[in-house]
Design a protein around this nucleic acid. Structure first.
Lengths: 145, 145
DNA sequence: GTTAATAAAGACTCGCTTGTCCGAAATGCC
DNA sequence: GGCATTTCGGACAAGCGAGTCTTTATTAAC
């Protein structure tokens, strides 16, 4: 899998908040139910996002999580880095350590281009863009059925 | 990780055979030692490649594995598909089932391009090409040290 | 035929990711 | 202050990939 489940859930949750938050704190239970994922497991992913100042949170009644910044100021790349680290953008496709321009594996040159393309796409895509695609493009964050 | 360890080992082993095989059967023990990986675990990965007619094998003395076809007729894509299946080229980046042009996730359009690029690169790269890069390009299949 | 070498196949352990559960801390509401 | 609601944090279980070990089957060499 390219993204871990934690990252996947965290990203989908962040988009949900961007689309349905409206400035309020959104309870994690509401997000978990909307996405059809485990509440407790989602909680852990969102804690990572809060620790990285991507989300803010509030306990108690009317509590929940909210975007720490405007949705257009949070890129997909940031969310991925917060949860999964930079392996996706840095690691050798063959799993070799220190594979770089100096000591490359035979696929390094081509894979480097793929990684750069992934990073570019994730950098230029922000949560507002994704939220808008859900609203006007009819795209979905959840499994069918 | 983009490729599983099995796939990683299988691919590196196939390139090793392409580069150092010279038509003979190469014992898996020799490959495992050259790559610095577990013999028994590598054996499992190579069994998958044999079952998919990418390698042939022979038991007993002077036995081992060999390429089932000329190295230029075996693409990286084939090896990846044999070991890891088509998840890498087919699966939704957000892990949604049935994410396609009809019911896309908000990242589908962009991720589709990344998947196509990965598949293109893996399709046009064959084992002979990789073996040549090791011989004339000084590229490496193993970890340093 | 005997022996040694080698792939094939399955059982087993280990560690990490995923997922569950429970208690503690915070906070709004009465 | 008391209570309900909600996040935070750690402990725990389950599932899966990674890695080890043992046995069996096959084959070349003598």
């Amino acid at each position: 899998m390219v993204l871990s489940k934690s990252c996947d859930y965290g990203l989908r949750a962040a988009v949900y908040v961007a689309a349905h938050g409206d400035g309020r704190f959104v309870p994690i239970g509401e997000i978990a139910e909307a996405l059809g994922v485990s509440f407790h497991f989602l909680t852990k992913a969102l804690q990572r996002l809060s620790q990285h100042r991507i989300l803010t949170s509030s306990r108690g009644p009317k509590g929940g999580v909210a975007l720490a910044r405007p949705a257009e100021a949070i890129s997909v790349r940031e969310v991925v880095l917060a949860v999964d680290g930079d392996d996706l953008f840095e690691r050798c496709v063959l799993g070799l350590d220190h594979c770089g321009d100096d000591h490359p594996c035979p696929l390094h040159g081509q894979w480097k281009a793929v990684k750069a393309e992934m990073e570019r796409i994730f950098t230029e895509t922000n949560l507002r863009l994704l939220a808008e695609r859900m609203e006007v493009g009819g795209m979905r964050l959840t499994n069918l059925g």
